[in-house]
C-alpha cells in the first residue's frame, strides 16, 4: 500500500508540520489567525499570476503572499483603518482578482479542488525538495528571530528598550509565513492551511511550561496529524487536506478530555 506517491506526500507533510508547529504558536500567541487566512486566500491570486507568467505554482504563490505581507506591513502604519478591515480587504480582494484573472484562461487546466483542499497525488520530487529545503531554511530563520519575536509578542516596547529589533523580526516572520503557506498548498490546500497552523499549538498549550516546549510539542502533534490524516486518506479514499485537519481536530479533542487545569492557567 505504501506507494511512491504516498511516501512523498508523507515526507512532504512531515517537513511541513515541522515548521507549521512553531510558526503556528506565534499565530496563536499573537492572534494572527486572520492574518494567516489572508495570506492563504491571496494564494489564488498567486496561482493566477503563476499561470500568467509561467512560473512554478509554489513560487508564484510565495511571491504573491510575500507582497500581501509587505502591503499589510505598510498599510498598518499608514492607514487608520482597523487591522481586521485591512486584512479583509486584502484577503477577499486578492481572492476575487485571482478568480477573475483565472477566468481569462479557460484553456488552462487549474484544478481548483486540489488548490482548495490539497492533493497528495500531486506531490512531485521537486515539491519535496522545495518543502524540505524551505522547511530547514524556515526553521533556521525562526531560530534567528525567536528572541526578538517572542519579546515583541509580550511587549514591543520592552523589546526595543532592550535593543532588539521587533519590527524586523515581525516582518521576517510574515515572509516566513508566506513561504510556509505556499509550501502547504499541495498538502492541505488554501482553505485549510490555517487549521494546520493553529490546531496543533492549541492542542499542546495546556501541557507546555515554556514557549519552546509549546513549539516543539506543536511540531510533534502536527507531524502526527499529517501521518494519521494521510493514512486515513489513502485507506478511505478521502481528500488529503480535510483528512489531516480532521485528525488534528481529533487530537485536539483528545487533549481536552483529560483533567481540567486550575482556572487562570489555560483558556
Amino acid at each position: 500500500m505504501l506507494d511512491d506517491f504516498f511516501i512523498r506526500a508523507l515526507l512532504a507533510g512531515i517537513g511541513l508540520a515541522m515548521v507549521t508547529g512553531p510558526a503556528g504558536c506565534f499565530i496563536v500567541w499573537r492572534r494572527l489567525a486572520y492574518f494567516g487566512e489572508t495570506i492563504a486566500h491571496s494564494a489564488l491570486l498567486g496561482v493566477a499570476i503563476a499561470v500568467l507568467v509561467d512560473l512554478h505554482l509554489v513560487i508564484g504563490i510565495f511571491v504573491t503572499a510575500a507582497l500581501v505581507v509587505l502591503a499589510m506591513y505598510y498599510l498598518e502604519r499608514r492607514d487608520t483603518l482597523p487591522t481586521d478591515t485591512l486584512l479583509g480587504l486584502l484577503s477577499h480582494g486578492g481572492l476575487a482578482v485571482g478568480l477573475v484573472l483565472l477566468s481569462f484562461f479557460p484553456n488552462m487546466r487549474v484544478d481548483l479542488q486540489a488548490l482548495l483542499f490539497g492533493d497528495i497525488l500531486a506531490v512531485s520530487h521537486t515539491d519535496l525538495a522545495v518543502i524540505w529545503g524551505g522547511g530547514v531554511l524556515a526553521l533556521g530563520l525562526l531560530w534567528w528571530i525567536w528572541r526578538p519575536l517572542l519579546a515583541a509578542t509580550v511587549s514591543p516596547d520592552l523589546a526595543v528598550v532592550a535593543g532588539l529589533k521587533p519590527e524586523r523580526a515581525q516582518l521576517v516572520f510574515g515572509i516566513l509565513l508566506a513561504a510556509v503557506i505556499a509550501a502547504a498548498i499541495k498538502i492541505v490546500g488554501v482553505l485549510l492551511i490555517v487549521a494546520l497552523l493553529i490546531i496543533p499549538s492549541a492542542s499542546v498549550r495546556r501541557f507546555a511550561a515554556s514557549p519552546e516546549q509549546m513549539a516543539a510539542g506543536a511540531a510533534v502533534v502536527g507531524m502526527t496529524a499529517v501521518a494519521g490524516g494521510l493514512f486515513a486518506s489513502a485507506t478511505f479514499d478521502t481528500p488529503s487536506g480535510p483528512s489531516i485537519v480532521v485528525t488534528a481536530l481529533v487530537l485536539f479533542i483528545l487533549t481536552r478530555l483529560g483533567r481540567t487545569l486550575p482556572a487562570g492557567d489555560a483558556r
Partner: peptide
C-alpha cells in the same frame, strides 16, 4: 511599562520571563 497584557495562550514562567530579551 504601565500595562503588560500577557496572552493566556503564551506559557511563561517567572524565570523564563527574566530572560525574555537576553
Amino acid at each position: 511599562p504601565q500595562r503588560l497584557a500577557l496572552s493566556p495562550t503564551l506559557p511563561l514562567t517567572v524565570r523564563r520571563l527574566m530572560t525574555l530579551t537576553e
